[in-house]
């Protein structure tokens, strides 16, 4: 479904003025249709930049992205029609309620949609006339996903959707993601929550310093890399894998 070859993105180096560094450094991805694919990595690993290149929001310095047999360089607007994107920041126009915002996003795809039906899907039908600012953290994330669903996308990109949510809201969102996946939607999710990745994803790529350092199913990653246990679990978890691969020093 998604094929990225040799992706490269250069940014000015904040610690070394005048120099560039590779925020994304020659990444290859092959994401099959119908799976939940997790992109894991410490802060600053290049997850969001990679995602933005896949979504057509960021220029690709080198390499190519093919989604549903279309090259994003040649067909950016065609690809935007078949993907849904949930961004990390969740700000919308002022003074518009959820229903109006959903209708607006639908119209940007030239589609008329039943806003209330879509809001019911993310359990926000009772908030149809509320403003986004009046929502709780979990409700905001669910609304953000609802906005990404207006075009009934083939691929849904979620950028750290559960960061800052309480356990109930997190579980609730996971259920929503699994429901969507069961309907056949391919989902690409970035996270640094290992529990989330293990619970949701059929395949995981671990990124560090702009490169992919491991890519496999959670089970295989654990059996391969969780040899040094950091948690109390007997068999090892994805967190062991993550820490063994990316090291222990702080990444802020």
């Amino acid at each position: 479904m998604i094929k990225a070859t040799d992706l490269l993105k250069k940014y000015p180096d904040p610690s070394n003025l005048g120099c560039m560094f590779n925020a994304v450094d020659g990444i290859n991805l092959n994401i099959s249709e119908g799976i939940i694919f997790g992109l894991l990595g410490p802060n600053g690993a290049g997850k969001t930049t990679t995602l933005e290149m896949l979504e057509g929001l960021n220029d690709i310095d080198h390499g190519e992205v093919i989604i549903d047999q279309m090259n994003i360089k040649d067909h950016p607007y065609e690809i935007k029609k078949i993907i849904g994107v949930q961004l990390q920041s969740n700000e919308y126009f002022d003074r518009l309620n959820l229903k109006e915002l959903i209708t607006l996003f639908g119209s940007l795809y030239s589609k008329t949609i039943d806003a209330e039906l879509l809001l019911a899907k993310v359990k926000l039908d009772d908030k149809a006339n509320a403003l986004p600012d009046d929502l709780s953290g979990g409700q905001k994330q669910r609304f953000s996903i609802a906005c990404a669903l207006v075009n009934n996308p083939k691929v849904l990109f979620l950028d750290e959707p559960t960061t800052g949510l309480d356990p109930q809201a997190k579980r609730n969102l996971w259920d929503l993601v699994i429901d969507l996946n069961n309907e056949g939607m391919t989902i690409v999710i970035t996270t640094h929550n290992m529990e989330e990745a293990q619970y949701l994803c059929q395949e995981i790529a671990i990124m560090d310093k702009g490169k992919i350092i491991a890519q496999d199913s959670p089970e295989n990653l654990i059996s391969k890399f969780a040899n040094k246990l950091t948690t109390s679990s007997d068999s090892g978890t994805l967190e062991d894998v993550f820490l063994n691969l990316t090291g222990y020093e702080l990444r802020d």
């Binding site: 607007y77 935007k80 919308y92």
Partner: peptide, 14 residues
Amino acid sequence: RRGILKRLFVTPIQ
């Protein structure tokens, strides 16, 4: 600044 433009340009509008 608020990321609203970015949200708009996720959709196919030009």
